[in-house]
């Protein structure tokens, strides 16, 4: 059996007897403390910027702060929220935002999936094509807005060139309020569908090749193979791409501003983000715009909250 020769010399230093000094020294030497500068500094900086900012914004949204001067925190109420929710501008911006969110996200996902499947198998230089398809993603929204402004131009834009060649009357893409939002969605899809393609391609590549081969041996056609076997396995990729796209649709501001170079985007394309920035920086209605921003944030959290919970449950964080 085990020997106990050294029992006596150590019994006086069992856990209870270990001085607080060595426990303190151990704590100070622990990974948690010694790695603190690494995670601590970025964490604090980020927290102040993101969560401090959100909190401050939240506080301002309860005041009546406007124009120059400082916010007055003595009377806090929900006035700005009720005012926003009952204003036509807010409601129409919210509607536009919803159309943008649903239309843009859906089409981007479908087109991205289509492109991914198109390039996944049997195409030479597939990587080169991917690079081209993804290229718009590397451009600033400011740049793409200029390119599409020219594409949508009533007199000499390419779209109208196509339309008139087909024998129709030219369309005022950005000037007609009932078409403008569709035109904006179209341009944004041009920019983003490469992104969804890349996400789907990564998903496709993680599916082992034998599944294609097994389906081939079973006699399934390529299209059936994709529809029945491959696409159902892309759920995770769809969810994460959809979250990114929806959050983008909520905060999209730059593209709309850069199309016209002013606070008010083309008629029929005003969304919450543009309304918020306009109210704040053009009219100085700080509290009012802070309230809109808070609601925008809550909507974004409504998208990412369930997503994060799902990721956490999956253990994939």
């Amino acid at each position: 059996m085990a020997t106990h020769d050294n029992t006596e010399q150590v019994t006086d230093t069992t856990d209870e007897a270990v001085g607080w000094e060595s426990k303190l020294r151990y704590f100070l030497n622990s990974d948690f403390v010694r790695s603190a500068p690494y995670w601590g500094i970025p964490f604090v900086l980020m927290s102040i910027a993101v969560y401090g900012g959100i909190g401050y914004n939240f506080a301002i949204s309860f005041t009546d702060y406007e124009g120059l001067g400082t916010p007055d925190y003595s009377t806090l109420d929900l006035e700005m929220y009720t005012q926003a929710l009952s204003s036509d501008a807010f409601i129409s911006a919210a509607q536009n935002n919803l159309v943008l969110l649903v239309g843009f996200t859906t089409i981007c996902l479908v087109l991205g999936l289509f492109l991914a499947v198109l390039l996944d198998h049997g195409i030479r230089f597939s990587e080169k094509f991917q690079t081209v398809y993804l290229l718009p993603m590397s451009l600033s929204f400011v740049v793409t807005a200029q390119l599409w402004l020219w594409m949508f131009n009533v007199e000499s834009g390419i779209l109208n060139l196509v339309v008139t060649t087909l024998g129709f009357n030219p369309v005022d893409w950005l000037g007609n309020p009932s078409i403008a939002l569709g035109a904006v969605i179209f341009a944004l899809i041009w920019q983003f569908s490469g992104y969804t393609m890349v996400v789907y391609l990564a998903g496709l590549q993680s599916i082992p090749d034998d599944q294609f081969e097994a389906a081939r041996v079973d006699g399934a056609s390529i299209i059936r193979t994709y529809l029945r076997i491959i696409v159902p396995q892309l759920k995770e990729a769809s969810v994460s791409a959809a979250v990114v796209l929806m959050v983008f649709a909520l905060k999209a501001f730059t593209f709309l501003y850069a199309l016209v170079g002013r606070y008010r985007p083309p008629n029929g394309t005003d969304i919450l983000a543009t309304l918020m920035v306009r109210r704040a920086f053009k009219f100085g209605e700080w509290a009012y715009s802070a309230a809109i921003a808070t609601m925008l944030l809550i909507m974004a959290l409504g998208v990412i909250g369930p997503y994060l919970y799902y990721q956490y449950k999956q253990g994939s964080l």
């Binding site: 964490f43 927290s47 900012g53 700080w286 921003a293 944030l297 964080l317």
Partner: peptide
Amino acid sequence: MLMLFVVGVFVPYQAVLVPLARF
């Protein structure tokens, strides 16, 4: 902490613009 970082990725910057300008 990770949750807070991830949320930080997605936060619409509109929610911090007014504080940012004031700060």
